[in-house]
Computed example of a mutant assay.
Amino acid sequence: MFRYSLMRAVGRLSQPEWIVAVMAAALAACAPVPPASSQAVVPPAVIRPAVQPAFQPDTEASGRPADGPLAVPPNLVALTQPAGEKRLTSATSNQSYWPLSQYFETQRNQAYCSVATSVMALNALGIRRPQSTLYPDFPFFSQEDFFHGIDPQVANAAKVSQEGMTLDQLSSALKAFPVEVRKYHAADLSLGQFRDLVRATTSHSDRFVLLNFRRVEIGETGGGHWSPLAAYDSASDSALLLDVARYKYPAVWVPVAQLYAAALAVDSVSGISRGIVIIGKRPG
């Protein structure tokens, strides 16, 4: 009976709504449903730089439930909620979502957020892929092989597994791949410029925003983190964050002002703000 009802409901949806419904169900299936009781969440901080380490392990999170991810803060909207799905289908800047969602990754360890974010974007770009140790017959960008062509002095698997990567470090590492790389420290951007970059980039399917931010500024538990932004909704002035730590938080819509505050947070390793890296196909 459930299957019959589901098929009837899907049949009444338009093609974009049908695709979103299927993707939302898939994303929800990747992580346990949060428990009914939610933990108290500290309201997002005001917009100002704050010093934090480049990476803070998720195991430092307080009050983490033993049987599922953390509760979504009330200031955020999960993609799998009806309001989250509606934002995606109505957003004019949602073209980054479709290729990124096809290659959505979960970081393979708690410091590999930059690596998971990168390989998701590299695969989504549709550029020539390298040989894969995981799938010998099928070229594919993978977290396991990410560092094979990167200068160890720039970044290496052993160190990144412990410390993660800074904004400058990841932008340098990505230059080893056949992509165009643009780096922006949030301290060098106004809120308006930050918003314009997110809106313009997410309206394309051949370029992506990789966000380096601190979780506490958006009301989440944890420290420094990387994830891609997949869409921008002007009505709510929010962007869709595809969190690669899917064991911890689902994909959520975040107010752009709070994303900007989170990107302004100073990385104690580099001593400067976090920000965004935009990668895309190289021109002709």
Rank of each mutant, 00 (worst) to 15 (best):
D188W: 05
P139S: 07
P136H: 11
L191R: 04
V154R: 14
F147T: 06
F147R: 05
F138S: 13
R182W: 01
F146A: 04
D168W: 09
N156S: 04
F147H: 10
E163F: 07
A186V: 05
L189R: 01
D188Q: 12
T202Q: 07
L174E: 02
H204E: 15
R195C: 04
H148S: 11
T202M: 07
F194H: 02
R129A: 11
S203M: 15
K183F: 00
Y184E: 02
M165G: 00
E180Q: 13
Y184L: 04
F194A: 01
S132H: 09
F177D: 00
A157D: 06
S132W: 13
S171V: 06
P130I: 06
S171F: 06
Q143Y: 06
S171T: 08
Q169V: 02
A186P: 03
A186R: 00
E163L: 10
L197F: 11
T166C: 05
P136L: 12
T201P: 09
S172R: 14
V179D: 01
V179S: 01
V198N: 02
K183D: 00
F147K: 06
S205F: 13
V179Y: 02
E144R: 15
L134V: 09
F194V: 10
L189Q: 07
T133N: 12
S161M: 03
L189S: 02
G192D: 14
H204F: 14
K183E: 06
Q143C: 05
G149W: 13
L174N: 03
S161I: 03
G164I: 09
T201K: 03
T202K: 09
D151M: 15
N156D: 12
I150P: 03
A187K: 09
L197A: 02
D137Q: 14
D145T: 09
K159P: 00
T202C: 15
T202I: 13
A158C: 00
F141T: 01
S190E: 08
A158N: 05
A157N: 08
G149N: 14
V198L: 11
E180M: 09
P139F: 12
S203C: 13
Q193W: 02
T166M: 12
D168A: 14
V198Y: 03
A157R: 15
F194C: 05
E144C: 03
S171E: 08
F138A: 11
P139H: 11
P178H: 10
H185V: 01
N156A: 07
P136A: 12
T201A: 05
T133W: 07
V160C: 04
D151P: 08
D145K: 13
V181G: 00
F177Y: 14
